[in-house]
Design a protein around this nucleic acid. Sequence first.
RNA 1: GGAGAGAUGGCAGAGUGGUCGAUUGCGGCGGUCUUGAAAACCGUUGUACCGAGAGGUACCGGGGGUUCGAAUCCCUCUCUCUCCGCCA
Length: 423
Amino acid sequence: MLTLKQIQENKQEVIERLKVKNFDATAIVDQIIHLDNQRKVTQAKSDQLLAETNALSKSIGLLLKEGKAEEANVSKEKTAALKEQIKEETTLLETTEKALQAALVQLPNLPHTSVQAGKSAEDNITVREGGQMPTLTNALPHWDLAKKYDLIDFELGVKLTGAGFPVYKGKGAKLQRALINFFLEEAIAAGYQEVMPPLMVNEESGFGTGNLPDKEGQMYYVEVDKLYLIPTAEVPVTNIYRDVILNASQLPVRNCAYSACFRREAGSYGKDVRGLNRLHQFDKVEIVQVAHPDKSYETLEGMVAHVQTLVEKLQLPWRILRLCGGDMSFTSAMTYDFEVYSAAQERWLEVSSVSNFESFQANRLKLRFKEDGGKKAQLAHTLNGSALALPRIVAALLENNQFEGGIRVPEVLVPFCGFDIIS
RNA sequence: GGAGAGAUGGCAGAGUGGUCGAUUGCGGCGGUCUUGAAAACCGUUGUACCGAGAGGUACCGGGGGUUCGAAUCCCUCUCUCUCCGCCA
């Protein structure tokens, strides 16, 4: 969430920049400023009353020590009246703070000043592209290939769990492992430290990365234990740094993690959910960084460059989009999407999203750092990206590399899976 | 799941109703000494909010209560440890 300081000092700018995300913040910003001002007044009053009571209590202690019980009793009566007032003020303070918090979490992150306005995916800008476009005729879609070579069983997944939970089999399963290991090794070689996080998180973690309260319905929830299945490793990995104060010399912190990801995907339908295009459970390697505010956009470019090497090594046709304000997530200040082209579906599939959240998550997480020798802790910047999400990569690999005799496995994966042809 | 013990500052560990934001040790930072280092010695060392400042307020796992006053007493929740049971 945005900081109160940001909103108080740059009210008009906040409103203007959120227009780029098609968000009218005027009413909420006014409400926040009003509540914050009320909070300050209320706190000043309540602090002063508390100070008076504290002083009286101290004097009562001294009086009793000197055996002046009569005088002590007079003071005790005085505190009774003060306590009434304190209760009133603190109740008001609490409700004001709650209302303030409720208003604050409604504001999306400010898009970076260079982000273009726009309504939907159509307004995204292609910043780079590469790879060979496929020239296949009569290419089979990946769901047919998966059946033909017995790689993925969607119906079996329906039997075991439900739609969107495929069962990978034989070389299909091994290809998953190979991709996971390939992505992890690439990330480690690029300087990321691997972590293997829990697949469920508590409510605090969901709040820290901005998944709660607004995306509640997108996560699976285990009611009895009040735990959420993670929609991405971003959630547990970023929350490692919740309530942490780092030294500037430790930045940037770089982590990578493989995890299964769980998404309810309520409201999705049609060709978007066919085959591997949109699943309730899928595998992903995620990269996460905590960066110094002055360096976070450099960091973002570095992460984009890393993801680019992955799609290049896999020899897939790729392009990088910079998302317009309207297509960006609630929490992001700038996002690049990676898409790969799939030969049979004849369309671009999103396989990665790399974002800078600036201090938006850090503010919720209380993730801060201190300049070397500095006294004051300030909010760090957080970033993350998929590197990469498997299902659509698999879809594109199967579709683009098919030939009469089978499916060719990209060279970089052969050491990881042990075969070069699926037949 | 049953029984018991515990949760205090970066870490260790005191503190069982008042001047305790908290003794002390270690670690960190600064200094003295030294050619340099070590040792020794001296000083310093939490976070947030309000305030122009002086200063004030809150925080001893979370929440609630008793009291003029709570790290300290009571209730409750969470977590950790030990033993028993079960188990990948």
